[in-house]
Simulated scan of single mutants.
Amino acid sequence: MNENGEYYYAFLEHRHLALVAGELEQSVYTSPRTMLTHARVLIDSVLQLVMQEEGIPDVQHKSLKDRLDEAGRQGLLTDEVRDALHDIRMAGNRAAHQPRAFRVTESLAAWEQLYIVMKWYVEVYGNPDFTFPEYRDPAPPKEQTFELPELESRLGRLEELLRKTLSNEREETLPAESIAVSTPKTHQSEQPGYTTVRQIRHGDRTLDIPYFLRDAFLLPQRFEKSVRFLVKLHGAEEARIMSELPADLTGLHQAVTRYTEKNDEQFFEELAEFVDEERARRRIRIERPGELFLFHKGDSIIVTETLAKAELTKENFPSLTPGFIRQLEESGIRRAGQLPQELVILAKYKNVGAGTIEKLFEDLKNTQKEAETV
């Protein structure tokens, strides 16, 4: 990636080749094993494109080695390109099977060999007027990077699109958000954690689940209309975390008694709100690192030192009742800074409902505003 956030192979006319190459570039330093393993898919795709250009039937070629051998028999490869393809294939095989640690020097070597292959492909089969740029090492990542499972998910998704394109199947379109963040020129705009890793559906509606919520705990109090439903499901060891949810929520109510399809639908609607709220909260945390927040539904406030020190009394926070204050004190919570970040957790206390918590949140915001004017 250069200083403008553009990946090296952004110039490739084949969009999906460019996307996969961009992911490989990102993984050179962060996960050499991933880069080496998935580089094989890129060169295999290049060889398939070459065979299409040359009119060579590809039906009998089942593997990368088969295609490499066939391209050699047809005299399509220079010695340098053949050696580069072979080295990438062998390095990828080692990375796929050996448990040893793989070094950045190995992924950088594969990156150089990819350059040899891609330069050859573009110069032989691309626009004859195009001048292939000089080799460039990937820049070491300066910001937070993608965790390995998310990176693998991104590569797998892009590789599947690439395979479908090469198979002349109907080309799929990435979701609008993914297009905006996955193309090489705008990839940097996507923060790690936002890659869609699964989808949950109900009826004809589908909900994308980002990587950072893959194993999120589904606190029942976050789902105001489905609290009892979720508590019951948790008791049956169901729907405790996001990854426990089925791909289709239709019929989820059958895991417990006395609930209906209406509860499935209601939970799906609240789950969509939950995902939107969590996306917003993550953005705030990224934009304001080092800050302490209090959250209530889709809203939040920053806990300043003044607010943190404010005692939880009726005088400071009119919404607090004597019983609420007593229960907070029994839990060791005497100041605003000791409140849980997720305020809906306070609903666990006796006679404390959603309305009380909402009023407390408003009191907290008012206290914050008053402190700003001092």
Rank of each mutant, 00 (worst) to 15 (best):
E13I: 14
T260S: 04
M90V: 15
K297A: 09
R335N: 11
S153L: 13
E54M: 07
E160I: 14
L108C: 09
A84S: 04
L68F: 04
E330T: 12
L249Q: 06
K369R: 15
L218M: 08
A139I: 14
P340C: 02
P246I: 06
A110I: 09
S31M: 07
L343A: 06
T37H: 11
I325M: 10
I209N: 02
L360K: 02
Q98H: 05
R335T: 15
V275W: 02
K225G: 05
D58N: 13
I43C: 01
D69H: 08
I357H: 05
F223R: 11
G332P: 10
R205W: 04
V50A: 07
R73A: 00
W120R: 11
T183D: 05
L36W: 04
P322W: 00
E305M: 03
E112Q: 13
A139L: 14
A216K: 05
H86Y: 14
D44Y: 02
D44V: 08
A180W: 01
V41C: 08
L346H: 01
L155Y: 01
R201K: 15
T78Y: 02
L219E: 14
N263T: 06
L155H: 03
I284L: 09
E112L: 11
E53T: 12
H202A: 10
A84K: 10
E244H: 03
E362L: 04
F217A: 09
E25V: 07
A110V: 15
K185A: 09
V374I: 07
G332A: 00
E123V: 13
E342L: 05
P184F: 09
L162F: 07
Q60M: 13
L77A: 02
D215F: 05
P192M: 02
E112V: 00
Q113A: 05
G203R: 02
K119L: 03
E171R: 15
P32V: 06
T195Y: 00
R15T: 15
Q338A: 04
N351S: 02
T183F: 12
G92S: 05
F324C: 06
P340N: 01
I284Y: 00
R33A: 10
A280L: 13
G235E: 08
M51D: 10
L42N: 02
K62H: 09
A180T: 12
K350A: 03
S31L: 03
M1D: 06
F217K: 13
A139S: 12
K350W: 10
Y9R: 14
S182H: 08
G290T: 13
A95M: 12
E311R: 15
K359W: 01
M51H: 15
E134L: 11
E237N: 08
E147W: 04
